[in-house]
Structure formats: structure tokens, C-alpha cells
């Protein structure tokens, strides 16, 4: 017994190293599977406040770009305004009624931290649970998909960016509604990959890609990007297209969080069907 103690004392450096390394590995593996490993996300209080303080200073540098972006969003919305259209067919009668029921609402939030230079990238938003943000809500901007909320604290939320290996988005080609899957393969943060496009589909450079609406997270027809190139990868029977993303993840500063009001109803129904359903 005494020899054992002496042995441990002699090699205490090694044993202490082993202990800390095992703790680190356990933290890594456990927080991968349990999303509630609360301390280790940038939505936690300490890092959230540091990022917010820093952001309140540095955000002044991007004001011009942000304003231009807002102006552009406003313009697009104004064009949809009903007053812009002349009603030529007097037979059609239209008014607000209870036929259409609201499915999505939007919350605005600011990005206070983000990365694009890792394999798995995240963002931190300056709003959290008390503002109504919940895990698994979609995050978009005026012109594209940005990510999905993963964790929330009272005042902050951390978002899995489109630039993450676990982030799969169901998308479609605008002109013919063919569905594919969007997943970032690393490298260039402005380009991502759409796979599983059937080989008979007619593709051309510049085709627009939108969200398919086959999910509980994003509404249909949110713009994602445009096709740049495509190929048939070895051993596959599908087209794999390179998509240039509409948003610049490195410049994100203001985003909208999508709340699906019918999410629970859809989830309940779909939980009866076995198998994975992607975002």
C-alpha cells in the first residue's frame, strides 16, 4: 500500500495530467450528446456579457452596411405591398378573413459573436429565453438562411451556423421545385454543397435555391443562394451542386428568428411516423 502511494507521489505529474485529460474528454463527449451541458456554450452568462459589451463597441463600425441592408429589406417588402398593384379584374373580391391562419412569426436579434474559420461554426445572439427564443428555431436574414438556435439562456442564445457539419437543410431548386439537401463541407465559407439532386433534373448556373418548407424550422421559399457548378461524384447517382450562399456569414449583424406557431402540432403528428426528419 505504501509502495502504491509512493508510486503515485513519484509520478503525480503524469497522474494529474491523466485525470485532467480524462475530465476534458468526458466533457467533450458528454456535451456532444446532451445539449443541456450548459456551461460550455457561448449562451452562458459570462461569455455572453463579454461578447455583448465588446459588440456594443464594435457594432458602430458596421452601421453603414447594416443600414444599407435594412433599406434593401424594406424595399423588397414595399414592393409586395398591395397598394402597388392595380386591380384590373373587378370580379375578384379580396379582403382579410379567417381563411389564412398565421403560421410563422419573427423576432429580431443582433449577432454578438460569430465564427467562419472553424469546421463547426456557431453564432451568439443578444436575445434569449425571456425574449421568446427557444431551441430549434430557425435564424434567417433579409436575404438568406443563417442557422438554427441550439441553446438558450435567459438573455442569450447560441446558434448552429449553416457552416456546421451537423447542419442539414432541406432545399429546393426554384425553377422546378426539385428537393435536395444542403450541407457545408468546410473550406470556403461563402460556398456550400447541395446534394441528392436527381440526375434527370435540368440545372444551369445561377439557378436560385430556396428552403423547401419540408421542416418545422424554416418557412418555404427563404432564399439560400445560387448554383455555381455541379458534378456527379464517383459512386453516386445524384448531382452534387456547389451553391454560392446569399448571405456573407462573416458580416452578419442583424437577424430574424423564426417562430413556428404550429410546430407542436406538426411535431406531434410526425412523431407517430418512424425515421429521421431533417431540418
Amino acid at each position: 500500500m505504501r509502495n502504491l502511494f509512493r508510486f503515485i507521489q513519484r509520478y503525480h505529474f503524469f497522474f494529474f495530467f491523466l485525470l485532467l485529460q480524462v475530465v476534458a474528454l468526458l466533457l467533450t463527449l458528454s456535451s456532444q450528446h446532451f445539449q443541456q451541458a450548459y456551461l460550455f456554450h457561448s449562451s452562458n452568462t459570462v461569455s455572453g456579457y463579454v461578447y455583448r459589451t465588446y459588440n456594443s463597441i464594435s457594432s458602430y463600425m458596421h452601421l453603414r452596411e447594416v443600414n444599407e441592408q435594412l433599406l434593401e429589406d424594406n424595399r423588397r417588402l414595399m414592393e409586395r405591398n398591395r397598394e402597388n398593384f392595380l386591380i384590373t379584374d373587378q370580379q375578384v373580391f379580396k379582403h382579410e378573413d379567417s381563411v389564412s391562419q398565421r403560421r410563422y412569426t419573427y423576432l429580431n436579434a443582433g449577432v454578438i459573436n460569430k465564427s467562419v474559420n472553424r469546421r463547426n461554426n456557431y453564432m451568439t445572439l443578444n436575445k434569449g429565453r425571456q425574449h421568446g427564443i427557444e431551441p430549434d428555431m430557425g435564424v434567417i436574414t433579409g436575404n438568406g438562411v443563417a442557422g438554427i438556435v441550439m441553446h438558450v439562456s435567459d438573455n442569450f442564445s447560441s446558434v448552429m451556423s449553416l457552416l456546421h457539419s451537423d447542419m442539414l437543410v432541406s432545399v429546393k431548386i426554384g425553377k422546378n421545385d426539385h428537393i435536395g439537401t444542403l450541407q457545408w463541407e468546410g473550406g470556403d465559407y461563402r460556398r456550400t454543397v447541395m446534394s441528392y439532386i436527381p440526375p434527370h433534373v435540368d440545372l444551369s448556373v445561377g439557378d436560385s435555391i430556396f428552403t423547401s418548407g419540408h421542416s418545422r424550422v424554416f418557412p418555404e421559399n427563404v432564399f439560400v443562394g445560387t448554383i455555381e457548378d455541379w458534378e456527379v461524384r464517383r459512386g453516386e447517382n445524384f448531382f452534387t451542386a456547389t451553391v454560392k450562399m446569399a448571405i456573407d456569414h462573416n458580416k452578419l449583424s442583424l437577424v430574424y428568428v423564426v417562430k413556428n406557431l404550429m410546430r407542436e402540432e406538426q411535431e406531434e403528428l410526425e412523431s407517430a411516423v418512424p425515421g429521421d426528419i431533417q431540418f
Partner: peptide, 23 residues
């Protein structure tokens, strides 16, 4: 490493690699 991990949302990979460096 742990503090860097908390800020970066990177599980505990900085912790593990910094402990390895110290060792």
C-alpha cells in the same frame, strides 16, 4: 483551455489540447 472553450462553443477540445501542451 476551459475558458477558451466556453467562449468558442467548442466542447472541451481546447482544454484537452492545452493540457496536453502543458504535459
Amino acid at each position: 483551455g476551459l475558458l477558451i472553450d466556453v467562449f468558442e462553443d467548442s466542447l472541451a477540445i481546447h482544454t484537452a489540447s492545452t493540457v496536453m501542451l502543458a504535459f
